[in-house]
Design a protein around this nucleic acid. Sequence first.
DNA 1: ATTTTATTGTACTAAGTTTCACAAAAACTT
DNA 2: AAGTTTTTGTGAAACTTAGTACAATAAAAT
Lengths: 211, 211
Amino acid sequence: MRGTLNKELVIRLLKYRRILTQLKSLGFEKVFSNNLGDAIGVAPALVRKDFSLLVLGGNKRGGYNIDYLSEQLGLILGKTNEQKIIILGMGKIGTAIAQYKGFLQGDFEVAAGFDVRPVGLPESLSLKVYPIEELAAFCNANSIQVAILAVPEEVATESHKLLKDSGIRGILNFTPVELKTTPNCIIHNINIGVEIENLFFQVIRNGLSGA
Amino acid sequence: MRGTLNKELVIRLLKYRRILTQLKSLGFEKVFSNNLGDAIGVAPALVRKDFSLLVLGGNKRGGYNIDYLSEQLGLILGKTNEQKIIILGMGKIGTAIAQYKGFLQGDFEVAAGFDVRPVGLPESLSLKVYPIEELAAFCNANSIQVAILAVPEEVATESHKLLKDSGIRGILNFTPVELKTTPNCIIHNINIGVEIENLFFQVIRNGLSGA
DNA sequence: ATTTTATTGTACTAAGTTTCACAAAAACTT
DNA sequence: AAGTTTTTGTGAAACTTAGTACAATAAAAT
């Protein structure tokens, strides 16, 4: 079953889960496919299809039960709580991500930062920054599997190698260098420059009809 | 022709252009479809298909001419140089992006930052941070079309409205709230939390075969 | 109890995208 | 000059994904 979960579907499921958590905290008990569709920006039929594929049933007029859905999605997606990540490259982007509010909501924890210089640590943050020489030992000792890469472009490739050699199995790459997934290490590239160029292109193409 | 450029294709074209710029600076004159495919992580046949679609020809054994390709991609994608953006929300993420090295390479310029408080400006950065009351006037006076949204989650929705009311036509959204594209304003959502959850899921599913 | 309404579940349809496979052609070799 | 190699260009196939439309059915209303 899980072999059939493609990338886009997984992202939708993660988003459903986030919405469900919010709805639950608001005291809601059930939800309809069009609510979820609206919330994550897809058609209601696709929501139903997704749940149908996962054999998560709803009630013909009562929609879906939020508790049940949350629970089942938890089983399928796994609990990410208590998962730990490290950040390699504690420059502006790295430290910003370390303090990202979304992480404080209990999704996962930044276990440590690493940099060439053990510097620039904002005092308010209870996060230690170690020199990169200690990366492999730390990852090993703490079973770290996932890392954020936020080093300067010039050292992206060598940092990538370093992470792989430290046993890291997944990297969220914020450098502009396009890293490639291998059987041992999954890469997700976030290229902010390309994202903005892309946005400009879409905006210009979209024209000024409404301005 | 441009109507046929879908989202993924545009991203590939932007990536080709970046690679070509790098190759040119290294003194290369021609490039093969497999080089470009390797560089951006797609099959060579797709590279050729892309260029074929855009009627960008290569030489049957000599590959593609880098200068020509660069020039033509420039015509298709538009020059993003000299484009200006603003950042709404000058917290950690906002200021980090303002200082992002990739932007300094001349792709575009951060014209100003905006925040509820005109505070926290790093002195080394020649960027002014204005109170949000001035947002609409500034965007109007400077013809700003694209913005980065990096405010706290709680004020994401109202900030979104504010940007639209200020004439912004494209938003790169770093808040966890899923904003939706409208005819007048294109949204690209970057949800770091979801990205990390997704990475964890892929890593766990991928198993530990190589560790 | 019957009718109406709202919503799920899914077979079918449609569209889009990537990969495959190979002919065509240019450049190089002998 | 003939043959060999390399690389493009592309039609066809395969795959994937999303959308449509409607039957089934549960709940609500009368």
